[in-house]
Design a protein around this nucleic acid. Sequence first.
DNA 1: GTTAGCACTCTTTACCCCCGAGTGCTAATT
DNA 2: AATTAGCACTCGGGGGTAAAGAGTGCTAAC
Lengths: 350, 350
Amino acid sequence: MLTEVITVLTDRQLLIFQVIVDDFIQTAQPVGSRTLSKKEEISFSSATIRNEMADLEELGFIEKTHTSSGRIPSEKGYRYYVDHLLSPQKLNQHDIHKVQSIFAERIYELEKIVQKSAKILSELTNYTSIVLGPAVRDNKLKRIQIVPLNKETAIAIIITDTGHVENRMFHLPENIDAGDLEKVVNILNDRLAGAPLESLNNKLYKEVAVLLRHHISNYDLMLNSIADTIKIPAYDKLFFGGKTNMLSQPEFHDIEKVKNLMNMIEQEKGIYDLLSKNKSGINIKIGRENNNSAMENCSLITASYSIGTEQLGTIAILGPTRMEYSRVISLLNYISADLSSVLSKLYQNR
Amino acid sequence: MLTEVITVLTDRQLLIFQVIVDDFIQTAQPVGSRTLSKKEEISFSSATIRNEMADLEELGFIEKTHTSSGRIPSEKGYRYYVDHLLSPQKLNQHDIHKVQSIFAERIYELEKIVQKSAKILSELTNYTSIVLGPAVRDNKLKRIQIVPLNKETAIAIIITDTGHVENRMFHLPENIDAGDLEKVVNILNDRLAGAPLESLNNKLYKEVAVLLRHHISNYDLMLNSIADTIKIPAYDKLFFGGKTNMLSQPEFHDIEKVKNLMNMIEQEKGIYDLLSKNKSGINIKIGRENNNSAMENCSLITASYSIGTEQLGTIAILGPTRMEYSRVISLLNYISADLSSVLSKLYQNR
DNA sequence: GTTAGCACTCTTTACCCCCGAGTGCTAATT
DNA sequence: AATTAGCACTCGGGGGTAAAGAGTGCTAAC
């Protein structure tokens, strides 16, 4: 187990540190002692501040960009700021109004609500928002449907209890007729309806296979196609908002950084990894804490949304390390609570 | 009707112009007379070249970036190059191999094939590829299905003859039972199956409404929900490949340009407009011909793919005006032909 | 008609210098 | 003992100048 050295900062150091972070978050410019001394909340001279800053730097909370520059928060500094100095921000009327517009229209599809949340969130923050869509993994099967398109192909459709629909085309075995198909579908629904999607594959081969054998000759081909359809959602869907917002951040004037980040966003796999392994509640990962070179100058704040106690998905904001943590956290909290309550009302009694 | 002034260039001017364009496409650097005079295919002095270039500039085919710079092709120049000087390029073995990998796996879904095409195309060209997915507009309805999820909500699913599936949740009228629903579904399929999606809305209100009235009390609410489901695909889907490839092009070192372009790509509406109004075959739009400020330094080459004679969708490459036109055109031709033939085999007899 | 030669233009790069913002340290002040 | 004024020093950025390099247009010679 790691032992954390608890650093005790004096009140004055704390004050200076906080003002440095707040100022840097706003301006993106290194903060010097003169600038600080002019702030209302600071009543001592620049020399004093310089001394304190030297100490704060020694402790690793702030750093210089070059020998005679002002200071910027280090990653450790942001971590401390986030852990100890964050005061929850009240959302203003405009924010609240916009968030509630997500649920203004009568929308029933989970996915659409989630997508709209991503959009609104990115508009409110000017950062990039990412939403990991509702996990279908633990949905339960509502119905399987097979619709033949012509003699050779048919389309298999599965519907889950949350209204999620997956479909896939497959090749029909030769010499199968409509009656056979109907029997197959009946057996499938009989045996599998109500079962969690995760368990379907297993059940399919263990319980259904035997039954199918009695009814159609070329059953194995069909079985594989159905198994294919069932296992489609390997990853849950990702929704993005404001993918290009990062381009407006001064830290991304360097095209190379942009390219790295955008590439990761496009690939989705990396993002998926970042989002999926978070616990419930608010999670904050700062810079290299994300273990991802493209995220060097970025922070990721995630929150989960749920139906009742069942965690459904994750909603996140990706921004520069110099991010408005307080505001973003408030927003995420607010949206995820709203999302959870609306979704619960809609789907609780499924 | 516009009268086009036909400009006759001497063979030598043509040669010089072609070499300028080819060189600039490769290097992205303005081409000077000295550089040209060193080329194998050019056997006259730099002074002669300078004279010819002055003429070419007067005619508007090339331009200078500043008074004493080399020349770059103008938009008019690219247009001429594309219209008169393009020699079809043979694809190499590697290209052909990669293209054919699109169809290597047995995939039946139109969308997946199309998506894979976009990916491969962007990898082969290092530009951004865009595919306008199969138009569902003129698909014909295969089947409508309604699956109740609980007492209040149900999900309506429509399946088209090409295997496209759309679904939408809706609120069930109160006091409707499973038998009623089945009747509704039967009526719908009876009346609408085989009809083009476009005509469904009309038919629904004109023919089906009367029938429904006899069977369920609250039929109008239901009717509207079904109408909603049917009209979902307002725009055909867009698929992208290599969205970030543009970032590697030297003309996009300027962050502002990148932002403009990326924003347009993200919004999709603009892209949709650019793609949807093209005729069959290869279309080339250079720079401002696209009528879109974000496309100032870009060219768009589109090709259509089809089943039989029915145009299905569009496949396109978005790159800088300094684009490898010849190669891209060959690739697009090749892929669209392959796409068309494979899709025809799969769906001809639908 | 072609080309060698030349003066001229413009960009790029480097270099220098100076200014401003900031620092750390020391000595004086409270 | 803590705070602050003062000062020497450092570094980045902006402006200016100079030289190099690539290119042009024009003229005169071939």
